[in-house]
């Protein structure tokens, strides 16, 4: 079994210490950090993400794998920076103003990180200005807003209007999600994308970033 395959498999089993050691071994062997990231860590998260999407594993198993990925990433980060490798996209994520629910949002963050995206999690009860401020500061690709309540989902429109009001609408793609949010609501408030669950949100964000960065 190659080292990269072993990294992927240990990650899928949530073996953080082993992943850490294997990543170090791969670096020591002179493997390109980008290859370790893509064919080791992201490959493993891709497999576990796919299993989650197909209802083969539960969230705790994905979380354990994500922790193993973070352990490996910590070792890999300086080497990626030296090699000039950047995250495949940056997402500003938060639950909208007036809404304190974050279980769904946290799952979205986990799945997006598993796709190699950098996620800036602003937490809950996030006012529109804060989404914009963070997006500008981090030169983000996507602003992703979550809401669980029918009385707070309307805040998503305020986020979009705030971004547009500052002349930044074309710069950021805006995603919306959460239990009461629908495709038609997404269109009605002028958001770019609706995702019905955490896995789809991660897939869509990764695709959007690829598309945006391609051109």
């Amino acid at each position: 079994m190659s080292l990269l395959t072993e990294i992927s498999e240990m990650l899928q089993r949530g073996k953080a210490a082993e992943v850490k050691n294997l990543v170090q071994n791969a670096i020591d062997e002179g493997t390109d950090p980008r290859v370790i990231l893509e064919e080791g860590l992201l490959h493993g998260m891709g497999v576990i993400g796919e299993k989650f999407k197909n209802n083969e594993v539960y969230v705790p198993e994905v979380l354990i794998a994500a922790r193993a990925m973070n352990a490996g990433s910590e070792i890999l980060k300086p080497h990626l920076a030296d090699a000039g490798v950047e995250a495949s996209g940056t997402v500003i994520l938060g639950t909208v103003k007036g809404d304190l629910h974050d279980i769904g949002k946290n799952l979205v963050r986990m799945m997006m990180e598993g796709k190699g995206l950098e996620v800036i999690d602003l937490g809950v009860d996030v006012p529109p200005e804060k989404f914009l401020e963070a997006a500008l500061e981090r030169n983000a690709d996507i602003i992703a807003c979550s809401a669980l309540l029918t009385t707070t989902m309307t805040e998503m429109k305020n986020v979009i209007e705030t971004v547009a009001g500052e002349g930044q609408r074309d710069r950021f793609r805006i995603m919306v999600g959460g239990a009461p949010v629908t495709e038609s609501f997404c269109k009605s408030v002028g958001a770019d994308l609706y995702a019905p669950d955490a896995s789809s949100a991660a897939d869509a964000a990764a695709a959007l970033c690829r598309e945006k960065r391609a051109g």
Binding site: T150, T151, M153, T154, P180, F185
Partner: peptide, 8 residues
């Protein structure tokens, strides 16, 4: 019952 989608 609760409100339809609207701000409070």
């Amino acid at each position: 019952f609760t409100l339809p989608t609207m701000e409070v």
